[in-house]
Nucleic acid binder design. Structure first.
Length: 802
RNA sequence: GCCCGGGUGGCGGAACUGGCAGACGCGCAGGACUCAAAAUCCUGUGUCGGCAACGGCAUGCGGGUUCGAUUCCCGCCCCGGGCACCA
């Protein structure tokens, strides 16, 4: 028995990290790859706290996948960068009183150190940071392409305003009426904002989901977010010939519409208000506006509302029905007005009950109490449409009313246009110059980037105007079109614009005269596999898809879906709760890596549970992984001196089973069970006292994605000097060798296990049954009864039914 | 309320398309080595009854389909995540 030197992870890992740099191990040929594989992971926001366990978990899982693909023979490009603009960075800078321009580079340096230390297969030649003018020049360029295509527009709109962060938030950043960052209730403000017409792409964004190989959970989130509703717009006329258009998904229930409700801020409210109701309506409108969005949206049980004192004609029944306003109707969905069908809508029912409005059922559903919302019923009280099923009735009613010019079939989306304006400092300035004569003018592309000026006092204020407005020399510029005095746009763009195209930049970072090189892009994109968390299922992923579609439509790229294959990893929690600074349960990986080494920590994180489900972080089990790697270390050193020869049959079989299992499980991201399989194999080698090279080398290759440093070290110690283990090929299994000659068969009597048999593989039913009946344990349950039925699963099971 | 997940030993978790529930690891117990401890190695470890052979019971709860159900169907309960007066 050879006495191996002891395993010192720090020593091994430092050495190999240096080697990878010297030997350019992780730098694929971007120009002429034989088989390009773009392995993308979601780049981090470089927080001051450093890389946390959640990042490590995600990156390790993605890195294992990339390394595995490389061993399959692909040229794997695995880049890394930093999503360094945005409110989170700026707020942190504010809280510690350091300028972000100083703070962020420090954070990035710390992240870079950690990312190198954990052993990712990153191609550092292509690192990027969204705060680099060489990057955001192209973010601004992207804005201009949308602007020129008419997809960016400015409008005065009710926006979500966070009074604490003093900025506008996208709908996606408002959680339960609160700011996703600081949890402050969001207020409504009216500001001029830049929007992107993502709603123009709603249908395509939705439809393409069917073509994507994505985690089902992510698809579901996006589908929900886009929120398609099929329905119709119906027109209600007043005696004065004013028209109120409503959107409904249930045109079949129009005969049951007993009143109308408009949003309090609906433009027709004034015109529809009877004189005597005017003061009350004004008061109500003011009250609603003062209400914070939480109270209005999440709304408790009691509904409020007010009769306007006027009536409209139900286009179907011809009946005059009262017009109300109520804050349960939202201006920013549909037409801002609804027909209320209290018999068949929960909210309308509640409202009608409270204000004693008539409730008229028009759909008969077997045994259902009001309000019955089911569409599985037949129409009643609906004139000549009586007796029709809901869907068919709806279609006919729309057809009929459309003929009268009172209806049109309509699809409605929950998705809103993307508000990209931020009245903050830490972001790319929106490249627009306002001119009194020419209006908003695009900054000429050759003048990009519009650099973010250094401003000592970058704090936002309540004015609703970005701090950039306080920098006069920067703010006042001539109009690029007419040369008259102009003013720069002072809003910066949303961080999600930075990240909506970063995957296009990575392969082309060295080109400063183009955002992405056409050839590089054709070679490497779309991204082969994207691995990331579902926290970005709607924001980042939807925006990236939108931007990609726009670029495709402009002929700049040849594909419209950036991420044909996406896998969502799970969440690492601590004691059942999400890790967060406020809970104080954030686990920092550095100390673990210091104590155990990156390889042990990587594998430990992957062994915690299924990668795509996440798990609870606890460090009790980490010694198990370390023991395993120690065993590998010892057995590999044995292999250096151990004489070669044919493998014992049991080991040979186990080897091929292991290759099969580890290959399948690694490819499907089931890393926990792949690791278990390798553990079993090592245990088998040890109990067979087999340390032969032909048994150990395939193990090292399979282990390499998981414990890259250790695998490199042992590979070299086995005599493979000057060549990375990652330039080897993944072992293949022989299905013949992976199965045993004998099969163990479970013997059941009436479905209960009563014994086991070892028979030659492929044994016939009659032989197995005969042998089973000879077993004492089986006999006593069968004796005295006749066998009525035999269920036989070859090589697995026999069930005797008596 | 709606849409996704999920509920299996003391713990993290395994179980292919309905076919031996509990792989692998942690922990725990006993043993070996040691003056002793750590490390390492060996053995055991779902639960109840039994000295044992063995048997009963067990995958959130209640039904069902089936020779056979952690897996499929129906009805509930609980946990995590997303959306939420979206008409």
């Amino acid at each position: 028995m050879s006495h191996a030197p002891s395993y010192d992870p720090q020593d091994v890992e430092t050495r190999w990290q240096a080697r990878w740099v010297e030997r350019h191990t992780n730098e694929p040929d971007l120009e002429r790859p034989a088989r390009a594989f773009y392995n993308l992971m979601m780049f981090p926001y470089p927080s001051a706290e450093g890389l946390h366990v959640g990042n490590m978990f995600a990156f390790t899982g993605a890195d294992i996948y990339g390394r595995f693909q490389r061993l399959q023979g692909f040229d794997v490009f695995e880049p890394m960068g930093y999503d360094a603009f945005g409110i989170h960075s700026e707020n942190y800078a504010l809280s510690v009183g350091t300028h972000p321009a100083k703070l962020i580079p420090q954070n990035i340096a710390a992240f870079r150190r950690q990312l190198r230390r954990f052993g990712g297969m990153f191609d550092w030649r292509h690192e990027l940071a969204t705060t680099d003018p060489g990057y955001y020049k192209w973010t601004q360029w992207l804005f201009l392409q949308l602007f020129k295509a008419g997809l960016a527009y400015k409008k005065r709109a009710a926006v979500n305003w966070c009074p604490k962060d003093k900025t506008v938030l996208a709908n996606e950043q408002v959680i339960n009426g609160r700011c996703e960052r600081c949890d402050t209730p969001v207020e409504q403000r009216f500001l001029d904002q830049w929007f992107f017409r993502i709603t123009d792409y709603a249908e395509r964004l939705l439809k393409n989901l069917d073509t994507l190989d994505w985690s089902a959970s992510t698809i579901a989130l996006q589908r929900n977010w886009i929120g398609k509703s099929d329905g119709a717009e119906l027109v209600f006329r007043t005696p004065a010939q004013q028209t109120i258009t409503v959107f409904t998904t249930r045109p079949d229930t129009v005969f049951g519409a007993t009143y109308l409700v408009l949003a309090p801020e609906h433009p027709l409210v004034d015109a529809l208000t009877a004189a005597e109701q005017r003061p009350a309506v004004r008061a109500y409108q003011r009250e609603v506006q003062g209400k914070d969005v939480v109270a209005r949206r999440v709304g408790d049980k009691t509904k409020t509302g007010l009769f306007l004192g006027s009536y409209a004609r139900n286009p179907a029944s011809g009946e005059a029905i009262p017009i109300w306003i109520a804050d349960y109707v939202l201006m920013d969905y549909g037409t801002g007005a609804i027909m209320a069908v209290p018999a068949h809508d929960g909210r309308d029912f509640e409202f009608a009950t409270q204000f004693r409005l008539p409730i008229r059922p028009v759909v008969q559903v077997e045994g259902a109490a009001l309000p019955s919302v089911s569409e599985d019923g037949v129409l009643v009280n609906s004139d000549r449409f009586d007796g029709l099923e809901c869907r068919e009735g709806g279609r006919r009613i729309v057809e009929w009313l459309a003929g009268l010019g009172l209806a049109i079939a309509k699809v409605q989306y929950r998705l809103h246009d993307w508000c990209i304006s931020r009245q903050r400092y830490w972001g790319p300035p929106i490249p627009i110059i306002y001119c009194d004569r020419c209006g908003p003018v695009a900054v000429p592309e050759q003048d990009l980037p519009v650099e973010l000026p250094f401003i000592e006092d970058f704090r936002p204020d309540d004015s609703g105007v970005s701090p950039l407005a306080r920098h006069k020399e920067w703010y006042n510029v001539p109009c690029p079109q007419c040369g008259e005095q102009g003013r720069r746009e002072t809003d910066v763009s949303d961080t999600f614009l930075d990240s909506s195209w970063y995957f296009l930049r990575y392969p082309s970072t060295e080109f400063d005269d183009r955002p992405f090189d056409p050839r590089r892009t054709a070679t490497w994109l779309p991204v082969t596999t994207y691995i990331g968390g579902n926290e970005h299922a709607v924001l980042h992923l939807l925006y990236s898809r939108f931007v990609t579609m726009v670029l495709k439509d402009q002929g700049r790229i040849a594909f419209e879906e950036p991420f044909p294959k996406l896998r969502a990893h799970g969440l690492i929690v601590k004691d059942g709760a999400k890790m967060s600074k406020s809970r104080g349960n954030v686990v920092v990986p550095d100390a673990y890596i210091q104590q155990w080494g990156a390889d042990t920590f990587r594998m430990y994180l992957m062994f915690l549970g299924p990668f795509q489900e996440g798990g609870d972080f606890r460090d009790e089990g980490i010694t198990g992984i370390r023991r395993f790697l120690e065993k590998v270390w010892i057995i590999a050193h044995e292999a250096v001196t151990s004489p070669d020869g044919p493998l014992p049959p049991a080991v040979l079989q186990k080897l091929h089973q292991t290759i099969q299992k580890v290959t399948g499980d690694t490819g499907s991201l089931n890393y926990n069970t792949a690791i278990a399989a390798m553990m079993e194999y090592v245990n088998a080698l040890r109990s067979a006292h087999c340390g032969m090279r032909i048994a150990v080398e395939p193990l090292l290759v399979m282990l390499a994605p998981y414990a890259p440093h250790l695998a490199e070290e042992l590979w070299e110690r086995l005599g493979h000097t000057g060549r990375s283990v990652f330039d080897e090929r993944w072992p293949t299994h022989d299905p013949q060798l992976a199965v045993a000659g004998d099969a163990e068969i479970a013997v059941q009597v009436n479905g209960k296990l009563r014994g086991r048999l070892v028979v030659p593989r492929g044994a016939l039913q009659q032989d197995v049954v005969a042998k089973a009946l000879a077993e004492e344990g089986v006999k006593k349950f069968v004796d005295g009864n006749t066998i009525r039925k035999v269920v036989f699963v070859p090589d697995r099971l026999v069930n005797l039914v008596v």
